[in-house]
Computed example of a mutant assay.
Amino acid sequence: MHLCYLTNEYPKPGQAHGGIGSFLKVICPALAKEGHKVTVINGTDGEREVVEREGVTIIYTPFSYRRGLAWYHNYSAVDREIETLHQNNPIDIVEGSELSFAFITKRKDIAYIIRLHGGHHFFAEGENRKINLWKGYQEKRSFKKADGFIGVSNYVVQHTSKLLSLNNKPVQVIMYPINLGMFEGQDFSKIEPYSLVFAGTLIEKKGIRQLCLAMESVVKAFPQAVLHVYGRDWNDPKGKSYLSYLKSQLSPAILNHVLFHGPVDQKDLPEIYAKANCCIFPSHIETLGLVAPEAMAMKRPVIYTSLGPGPEVVEHGISGWLCDPHSPLSIAQQIIEVFSDPIEMQKRAIAGQIKVNQQFNIKYILPQNLEFYQKVRAGLNFR
């Protein structure tokens, strides 16, 4: 098959990227290795460029970022790339995220699939924000053009379907694959006792404020405890730094136990996780999140959010711990439990690694994607 992915996030070597970039970086080379033709159309603020990496053709097509008609320019640029590709080497599947197809031409001999990574309606509702009418319109228009949907968790499918119609199209939950070659189990001897690791953007919805506030109770029980925070700062529309706000909420005594390291390249995360006595990600809202399963793959104990897809990733009491991300007390209680029982910590860390090696393994996830692609494409013949 010829598979075409629409994104702005396909990572360049050495370039920081988020969850969608990590997903594409794993699945696209794996598909190419299986003999499929894989093309990525990636928006860029630079010149048009076509490169091949790991058997994947990446077309960097120039995007406009000016206000006004940038949307028209960008959709048109992607549409032209699809048309040229399709003429030269017919495309079987075009995949994008929630907004991708709003103004893309619907070609009858191509199957269009939306992967639900978490769209505008999903996060607006989850963060109690008003729907932006323009983005909301684009998302609805895009959904109408889709021939099928893949959800990265049960939660994102169920929640999105309450907000937007999936138009009775085929839907399947297929989780992200993890790079298990990068994130692989490490011996417990590498752990630095009482060290906590958080990785993610410094923003309220990631639960970092509640985690920092939880440190007061943790430090009382374990004075040696240190929280290592990795991630970029976030600025609000007025340019105010969330990191500055966060530090203002903490006492000087607690700030001595919280170290802010700034952004980190994904390739450095395995070494960071390897030293962690516990990795903790108390997000308020997620579609799935990769940091928790990546840390679990390292054979490290993980405390994850009890909300949203959290229970799909971590089974509380078996493969890790779940916390109420809005409650510093709940977060502190789970951390103290991890530190208090090293044997149980190791038991759950081992169970978490086993779970991730099954649930997030490209070996199992790749066939699921291909079967769904073929199913949706076969359905086109009956219209």
Score class of each variant (00 low, 15 high):
Phe63Met: 02
Ala253Asp: 15
His326Ile: 02
Asn256Pro: 01
Asp265Pro: 00
Ala214Phe: 14
Arg209Gly: 06
Tyr10Asn: 04
His316Ser: 01
Leu246Glu: 00
Ser340Lys: 12
Val152Gln: 04
Gln87Val: 03
Ile110Leu: 00
Met1Asn: 00
Glu216Asn: 12
Phe188Trp: 11
Ile254Asn: 02
Ile59Asn: 01
Ile174Gln: 14
Lys205Pro: 07
Gly200Asn: 07
Thr201Trp: 05
Ser330Ala: 03
Arg66Trp: 12
Ala16Met: 06
Lys275Leu: 14
Ser327Pro: 01
Asp341Glu: 12
Ala276His: 09
Gly317Val: 00
Asn167His: 15
Leu213Glu: 10
Ser217Glu: 02
Asn381Gln: 09
Lys190Tyr: 09
Ser22Tyr: 01
Arg209Leu: 15
Ser330Phe: 06
His159Leu: 10
Phe360Ala: 02
Leu196Val: 14
Lys135Ser: 06
Val50Lys: 13
Arg377Asp: 10
Asn74Trp: 04
Cys323Ser: 01
Val219Cys: 05
Ile131Phe: 12
Gln15Ile: 08
His316Gln: 02
Val376Gln: 07
Leu307Tyr: 14
Leu250Tyr: 00
Cys28Ala: 15
Asn235Val: 09
Gly181Ala: 11
Lys347Gly: 00
Leu246Thr: 01
Asp233Glu: 03
His17Leu: 02
Pro223Lys: 01
Val157Leu: 13
Gly96Thr: 12
Phe149Met: 06
Ala221Met: 05
Phe339Cys: 05
Gly320Arg: 09
Asp147Thr: 09
Ile331Gln: 01
Ile93Gln: 09
Ile343Lys: 15
His120Ala: 11
Met175Val: 11
Gln266Trp: 07
Lys205Trp: 04
Val94Asp: 06
Tyr373Cys: 02
Leu288Lys: 11
Ser161Glu: 12
Ala16Ser: 10
Leu133Met: 08
Pro293Ile: 06
Val171Asp: 06
Asn88Leu: 14
Phe101Leu: 14
Tyr60Gln: 07
Glu286Gln: 02
Ala77Glu: 07
Glu49Ala: 05
Leu250Arg: 00
Ser319Tyr: 07
Val152Thr: 13
Pro13His: 01
Asn277Ala: 05
Phe23Val: 15
Ala351Gln: 06
Pro223Phe: 09
Asn8Asp: 15
Thr287Val: 08
Val264Pro: 05
Ala332Trp: 09
Lys25Ser: 12
Asp92Ile: 04
Met296His: 03
Ser251Ile: 06
Glu337Trp: 08
Lys144His: 14
Ala70Ser: 14
Gln87Gly: 10
Leu290Ala: 08
Thr7Ile: 08
Gly35Trp: 04
Ile343Pro: 00
Ser241Lys: 07
Phe143Gln: 07
Gly185Pro: 11
Ile93Arg: 06
Phe281Arg: 01
Leu213Cys: 09
Pro170Ala: 06
Gln346Cys: 01
Pro270Thr: 00
Ser340Val: 09
Val264Glu: 08
Ile174Asn: 10
Ala16Leu: 10
Pro193Leu: 14
Lys130Gly: 11
Lys363Pro: 01
Leu180Asp: 13
His284Gln: 09
Val50Gly: 00
Gly151Cys: 03
Val258Cys: 03
Ala292Leu: 03
Ser153Thr: 06
Lys169Val: 05
Lys108Pro: 07
Lys130Trp: 08
Leu246Met: 08
Gly181Lys: 12
Met215Tyr: 14
Ala32Pro: 11
Ser340Ala: 15
Ile343Arg: 13
Ser248Val: 00
Gln346Ala: 04
